[in-house]
Every structure is written in C-alpha cells, then in structure tokens.
Design a protein around this nucleic acid. Structure first.
Lengths: 230, 230
DNA sequence: GCACTACGGATAGCAGTGCTCTCCGCTATC
DNA sequence: GATAGCGGAGAGCACTGCTATCCGTAGTGC
C-alpha cells in the first residue's frame, strides 16, 4: 500500500506519517521507484503502536523513539528487554527536592525489606525517591506509612503482568506486549485507582447511598445533592 | 516577606512566581504600598504545591489551575472534594480508538462485577475504556484477563489512601492531602510497579542471580512518621 | 537627602514540541 | 495527455512554560 492508504487505515494524517518517518519512529516505505514507496502491515502495526504510546500513554515523540529502538534491538532475555523498555520509559525526574537523600534511603530500605531484586539506583527508584521527597516537602511525610500497602499491591500487579507477558511465544510479540503492557498498563492502573477511590470514598463518607450506580449520573463523583462545583 | 525571599525560600525564580500569579495559580501578595506587596507562609506552601504538581505529577499549568480551584472551593464532603479533584486531574482522552464502545462495556461490567459505586461515565472510566480499546487495537486484547488482578490491587491501594487521607482533622489539610495523594501517589505507584516488574522478571528469567541487590542498603535511619517539614 | 538595589506590573520574546503547509519534480492511472 | 497522488525537504505555526526587559516607585544604608 502507499502512504494514502496507510493514512486511511490508521487515521493518521499523511504529513504526520511523513513526520514520524523523518523523526525515525517509523521506517520509510520500500522504494518501488525513485519517488514511490510501498508500506505493509508492519507499518500499520507500528503506526498504531506509536499512536497508542503517544495518545494513551502520553509519551513524547523522543521517548517513543527510544522505546522503539529498544523494541527493535535484537532482544536478549525478557529481563533485559523489560529493563531497556523501563530505561526508555521512566522519565528522568526534573526537580531537586530538599529531602532527596533521605527519600533515597527510604526507597532502598523498602527494597531491602521486601527483598526485591532491584537496584537502588534504578531510574524508577530515583523517580520514586523524588516523589517521596516531594511528599515530605509538602508536609505529607506520613505517606511513607502506606508504602507497604502500595508495594504489596504492585507485587500482585507485577505477577499478573509477568504471567500475561510470559504467554507470548513469539519474541517480537512478547517484546511489544512488554512495552504496551508497561505504558498502557500505567494508564489502566491509574484509572482503576481513581475508580476505586470513588467507590471507597462513597462507602466511607456516603453511608446512605444504595448499591452500585453503574451508568447513572453526570460526570463527577458527586451523587449527592448540595454544593455543585461550578 | 517580599517576592525575593519567597523565591529564595522555594527555589522558584522571581519571574516564574510572577508568571504563576498572572496565570492565577498563586494569589497576589497583599499590597502594602501601590507597588510593594508582602507574601506569607501560605504563599510558600501554595508555591511548593504548585511545583510538586508540575514537576513530579507532570500536570500542566492549566490543569494545576483547575486543581487549585477545586482545592480552594469551600469544601463539602471528602467524597465531593475527591470527585472535584478527579475531574480536574483526569485527562480527557484524545484518541478515538475503534473498539471504544466495547471497551466501555468491559469497564461497566468490571464495575458491576466488583460492586464499585462508581458511575460508568466517570472520566476515569472513560480514560480506562480508551486505554483498553488501545490494547485491543494493538492486538493485546487478552489484557482484559488481568483486569481483576489490577482491580484487587487498586482496592488495596484505595483503602490505604482513604485511611491515610481520613486521619487529617483539619479540612484544608485534608483537601490538600487528597490532591497530593492522588497526583503524587500516581507517580509513586507507577514507580513501584516498575520496581516490582524488575524483581519479578529477575526471579522468573534470571534463575542464577543471588538474593536482593539493594545497593545502598546501609540507610537504617528511615524516619517513620516523619511529619516534620525540613 | 542621595545613591542603589529590589520591587510590582506589564509587555515582549524565546526555546521546545508536535505537527502542518508548501513546494518540487515525478509517477501511476484513467 | 490530463489529473491526482506521491516522496522528500524545508519552512511555518500554534501552543506551552517560562524568561527578559522596561518603567516608575519603594525601601535601605550612608
């Protein structure tokens, strides 16, 4: 197929496709003439992946490029592929909060306590330390007390993720499932956390309400009359 | 204090503070003369909150403004404040994937199955549906099979979050803990998920490796309950 | 009083991101 | 042979998040 059909197939505008090719996210089409090229299903698949990472995962074009480089690298073990994907995805924290060294110790202690085989200088550990230091700066230092609950929840999620990823026999498919599962899985997880918050706060603070309310009211988690947020 | 001291106190450049005031994120100082103003601890606190939401939470200036509007609104119940914060924080999904209607049904079914008191048209439910539809488009439709694991993990997290939030007696403090806990909690949760991935994949795919590898494990002085702002 | 720095307020500018537009010569197709 | 579309390259554009400059005034040390 040519670029127009690729565009129609994926819903991505032609100039945008050209832009992705220029930026190295999408391989160029196979030239059939000096100025004609043909694209195949691999391009469709790759383009859908790019849009998913950008639109749903919220990744930047530069980050997507890194991720795809990791995806395309002749993969070693699953562990290494996952590590490469993590390195590409995990954003380098920008801020330099005050309590960072102490937060780093808190993270290292958590890893030790749970026996996780992860280096204390892993990008994700650093990102977490920055977040914990921000909690501290905001007077929410007591948040560290829920970390073990978070960690246990994450163990459960990670077990499910690894089991899911592990069932892919084909290597390329597996690598892609790692990337998709990691990036889009974040989106699913945070959305679910929000929904669980709504449920838990409804149960805790709105005793009177009946059972589940699937499909009812408009927008906000406000099912009760009263002060309407403008 | 005047703007220079506020800048020194928080590490935010003076022109940036002026910018935040213009953008309505930070209230202007109290004028002591036609062209002199004074700032107080509330400004310091608010400025720290803004930077935390932007730097660690990754929120845009516009989103921070919405969140702070919700924070400043004369709060009703915790449930309402949480709902308002959610509405401000949860990004409106941009993409229009193909399998969206089916994904919406999947989400509604999950809510029903778990008995969560959350509306199926909540922004987070819609965000989740978009993510699930993206999974489907990318040939990862089987991801729905791990949703219950995710949901159980989120119930645990949400219980911990609500318990944490619930211990704040002061209303303003409580509202701020909701916002901070929601936004920065996301960052902590995704970072922990990464670390759990590393651990689980090390255990599963790297049999030879020894025990945990927490590098800087010397830090014993982890301040539990460290509510003292430095 | 006087120099000097910092201030408040306003406007303009600037770097980065993610496309989008335009142009060119060419080619497949009717 | 007309016409639509193509590949490739460069310029442009809208938006975001600051940053720089200017102006007239206020506080401060001498």
């Amino acid at each position: 197929m040519r670029i127009g059909e690729l565009s129609r197939e994926t819903g991505v505008a032609v100039p945008t496709i050209k832009f992705y090719v220029r930026e190295g996210l999408l391989p160029a089409g196979r030239l059939t003439s000096p100025n004609q090229a043909s694209y195949d299903d691999g391009h469709v698949r790759r383009l859908r992946l790019i849009r998913g990472l950008i639109d749903v995962g919220g990744l930047s074009v530069a980050t997507v490029r890194e991720v795809l480089t990791a995806v395309d690298a002749p993969g070693g073990s699953v562990h290494k592929v996952l590590g490469a994907a993590h390195d590409a995805i995990t954003p380098v924290p920008t801020g330099r909060p005050e309590g960072l060294p102490e937060a780093r110790r808190t993270v290292a202690e958590l890893l030790r306590r749970r026996g996780w085989r992860a280096e204390a200088d892993h990008p994700a550990a650093e990102a977490m330390a920055v977040a914990l230091a921000a909690f501290q700066d905001l007077g929410q230092g007591a948040f560290v007390e829920v970390l073990d609950d978070y960690a246990e929840a994450c163990e459960r999620v990670a077990d499910a993720d690894l089991a899911y990823v592990g069932r892919h026999a084909d290597v390329e498919e597996l690598v892609e499932s790692v990337v998709v599962g990691t990036v889009l899985g974040d989106a699913v997880l945070t959305a679910l956390r929000r929904l669980a918050h709504v449920d838990r706060s409804a149960r805790r603070y709105e005793q009177h309400g009946g059972g589940p309310v699937a499909g009812g009211g408009a927008g906000a988690g406000v099912t009760e009359g009263g002060a309407d947020p403008s």
